[in-house]
């Protein structure tokens, strides 16, 4: 249940600071770091109690002064629906019913994801991917200790079953995830994106970041989470494919 936004057509990247030289055998195994992260944010038992999460929040597009609201639904095993309403631009929807990954907006129209873009969306839709990362990643490796915002962090390379690796930075002291970097696979091309996660606060039994700042394509924007609800009664139609997507599938 990570705070990712690639599911809404964005993705994450990293500007690599200078690596601190440590011998490989001095670094903890990536498996250990990932376990520690789960432990630090509530523990596997707390995660396992959850079967869905509904979040609302806001987005701010940096210097451009554009603001948006966000509502996101995420349910087991791999269903998502995200709706962003941008002032002056309208609604952007994105989701998957567990089989089809799609996006829809007035700006770009309906789109059914395929190939690596779909693999990325489905990976992010996997509700248990944090506690059972082996479902989605074939290899994880601790590469170095690097400084992020003044804190020593373990740099972990996550190689998914399909697609290009992502780089995660876990705080060496707290094991919280503080930065993620990856290349978003989009129809517009590969877009390197960097995200910084902060303002960790408890929601129920889970400690989660409430602010994510993303840099992509020379622009910066932030997402702030306002409300989080677990195990709520989400109407099944929330994850149903919109009519335009269904029409595209029939085409």
């Amino acid at each position: 249940m990570k705070l990712t936004v690639t599911k809404i057509g964005l993705a994450l990247l990293l500007a690599a600071p200078a690596a601190r030289l440590l011998a490989a055998d001095e670094l903890p195994k990536a498996e250990t770091i990932l376990d520690k992260y789960v432990e630090a944010t509530g523990g596997k038992a707390a995660y396992d109690k959850l079967h869905n999460i509904v979040t609302t929040g806001s987005m701010s597009f940096g210097a451009m002064g554009i603001k948006a609201t966000v509502s996101s639904y995420h349910a087991v095993p791999n269903k998502t629906y995200t709706e962003i309403n941008i002032e002056g631009m309208g609604k952007i929807q994105d989701g998957t019913d567990g089989t089809v990954a799609w996006s829809l907006s007035a700006m770009q129209g309906p789109h059914i994801k395929d190939g690596e873009e779909k693999a990325q969306a489905m990976r992010e839709a996997d509700f248990r991917a944090e506690t059972d990362w082996k479902r989605e990643y074939k290899e994880v490796k601790t590469e170095a200790v690097e400084t992020v915002d003044g804190k020593d962090c373990y740099k972990v390379i996550m190689t998914p079953n399909t697609g290009s690796p992502a780089t995660r930075y876990y705080d060496k002291q707290t094991f919280l995830l503080v930065k993620v970097a990856m290349t978003a696979k989009t129809p517009m091309g590969d877009i390197p994106v960097e995200s910084v996660l902060e303002d960790y606060r408890k929601e129920g039994d889970i400690l989660m970041p409430h602010k994510t700042t993303l840099k992509q394509g020379g622009q910066e924007f932030s997402i702030t989470i306002d409300t989080v609800k677990y195990n709520v009664d989400i109407p099944p139609e929330t994850f149903a494919l919109p009519a335009e997507i269904q029409a595209l599938l029939k085409k």
Binding site: G109, M188, G189, G217
Partner: peptide, 28 residues
């Protein structure tokens, strides 16, 4: 609204960090 086949593109935007293709998603 005017193309039958998706995946075509109008052109490419060249930024300092990356390039973005202006891809067209065909309406149903």
């Amino acid at each position: 609204w005017f193309v039958d086949k998706g995946g075509q593109q109008l052109g490419t935007m060249y930024l300092r960090e990356s390039n973005l293709k202006f891809v067209v998603f065909a309406r149903p």
